[in-house]
């Protein structure tokens, strides 16, 4: 279960679209812990990218 697959799975969860095939693959993983950690990491990335975007918009206008 390489890290890249976990990132792909969490990203598709954020978008809310996932194919049956990928889901079966993702569920081969034996524990949900990496998914949760990567999920939290991606939420932080989501927050900081939004903060950056907001500062950029304020600077722009």
């Amino acid at each position: 279960m390489n890290i890249w697959k976990v990132f792909k799975a969490v990203f598709s969860a954020f978008i809310g679209v996932q194919s049956e095939k990928n889901r079966l693959e993702d569920f081969q993983a034996n524990s949900p812990i990496p998914f949760i950690l990567v999920g939290i990491l991606m939420v932080l990335i989501f927050i900081f990218s939004l903060v950056y975007l907001v500062n950029f918009m304020v600077y722009l206008m």
Binding site: A9, V17, Q18, E20, G39, I40, V43
Partner: peptide, 14 residues
């Protein structure tokens, strides 16, 4: 079904 499971689980954090 897969999209529903993934979307609801992402809500737990988002």
């Amino acid at each position: 079904y897969a999209s529903m499971v993934y979307a609801t689980s992402s809500i737990a954090l988002l």
